[in-house]
Design a binder for these strands. Structure first.
Lengths: 249, 249
DNA sequence: ACAAAAGTGTTTTTTATACACCCATGC
DNA sequence: GCATGGGTGTATAAAAAACACTTTTGT
């Protein structure tokens, strides 16, 4: 066989020496929204090992034998929180040499690559699995401290994706509770996109006109004022709109 | 130090055994457009080694010591084609176990991960660097054969990105020649998005209203009919519009 | 003169924006 | 009764879509 000729073997051996060896990590940017207080939250974990011991970080893990990237992402999340519903998509891959201090300084040691994932969970459903020393917590995105590795950069990347997707994709319903008021959605959009991104009444009618929100008939009263209808996301009505360009804002 | 306690060392050692070892590859989806014939092209390379010997594939390489992912992407391209201008962005990371036949069947060998990049080049400028046996060629996207690995899937992913970006980002000017007619742009959009994506005259005025195309004054005649103005992309006029949402279609 | 391609303008329809106003409840 | 938040409608402005028409060239 041609590829087993001496020259090819030699080339192959030479080449192999150049190649970097990698461990591949998966880091999750897990967003949630506390509808009560209109706070955009991200799940952080305090590291209990070197490097960056005692430093807050995105929850992540290294990929194991036979495990896909997404499986690794799910595994980490399953270890940290219990959720019924979970939205997960790949975000970006960070692999610059030197991004992990475990890499030998001369850069001839093993490299650490991070494939980041973007996740959305419902705050009410998402029970944080108790860890010793309270090393897992929701942080308000604006109040996130200095994180381990390049995790602040990854978080920034995730925030941008969140803002963008909010405008053309129904991801808001992945973080809202099962049943919500129209004002809940509006507040959510305000929290993420900033105040005055749109007039409430226009936002409202645009959203209803899309046709995949169904009124449960149930009313809920929050303090003074007229009680609001609880709506829920109608996946069946939404199905035909999938892959179609939608405008939510 | 706490992290050097016996239990931690043991945990660490146990954990390490679970972890997969990776080689990381970079695969490029390089698009170009032949304005003369309105053909959307992608650069393919015929493999001259196992696995998939003699099979067409996306041009790629394995990442070397001390090399960033993007550097590896640039390196491959520099080996294949000469270009003055190049648009490059990360696309997606494919890392399912078993995606590369070099991985041992029991999946306890080294894994091969592919970080894909999306590139645009000008057809006129892009001189293919001569390879023996003509193993490098532009293929029309519709006529791409069965590719090595999961490269057809990566290409599909790249095509989707291309279509999406065309609508809100000025990437078209990365594949058009330096100076082009308005009809050239229109044909380019038709080629990629399909016929009847928009009326020519509306497309035309929308584009001009954006204000970053400048008329060079030079006219070009292509067969019968009135000669068309050659325009060029005005980067300075575009700069303030960067990061602003634009609509091209 | 006429076909072909470039370029301009006008009408119609749809969508976005601003904002006024009515409704139901707690206090 | 009136403040508070929920919900509806309407007038205006802007943008998208359709298409008719003029201009300049080659033959």
């Amino acid at each position: 066989m041609k590829s087993n000729s001496p020259t090819n073997l030699q080339n192959s051996a030479l080449k192999q020496d150049f190649l970097a060896d990698f461990k591949v990590g998966v880091d999750n940017v897990v967003f949630s929204v506390d509808t009560q207080c209109n706070r955009l939250l991200v799940l952080l974990r305090k590291r209990k090992q070197e490097p960056f011991n005692d430093c807050w970080s995105l929850p992540g893990t290294l990929v194991r034998h036979g495990e896909s990237l997404q499986e690794a992402a799910y595994r980490t999340l399953a270890e940290k929180i219990q959720v019924n519903n979970l939205y997960l998509e790949q975000l970006y891959t960070f692999g610059n040499p030197g991004r992990d201090p475990r890499e030998a300084p001369e850069s001839f040691g093993v490299r650490y690559l991070s494939v980041s994932y973007f996740a959305l969970v419902r705050y009410e459903e998402a029970q944080i699995i108790a860890q010793k020393e309270n090393n897992l917590a929701w942080y308000q995105v604006q109040e996130v401290p200095q994180l381990a590795f390049d995790h602040n950069q990854i978080l920034e990347y995730g925030s941008r994706r969140l803002r963008n997707k909010l405008e053309y994709s129904p991801i808001a319903f992945e973080v809202l509770p099962e049943r919500f008021t129209l004002n809940d959605i509006y507040q959510l959009y305000c929290t993420i996109l900033g105040e005055n991104f749109s007039d409430y009444s226009n936002f409202r009618s645009r959203l209803l006109k899309l046709g995949f929100l169904s009124d449960t008939g149930v009313k809920v009263s929050r303090g003074a004022g007229r009680p609001a209808s609880l709506y829920c996301f109608d996946a069946i009505a939404f199905a035909p709109l999938k892959d179609k360009p939608l405008v939510f804002i």
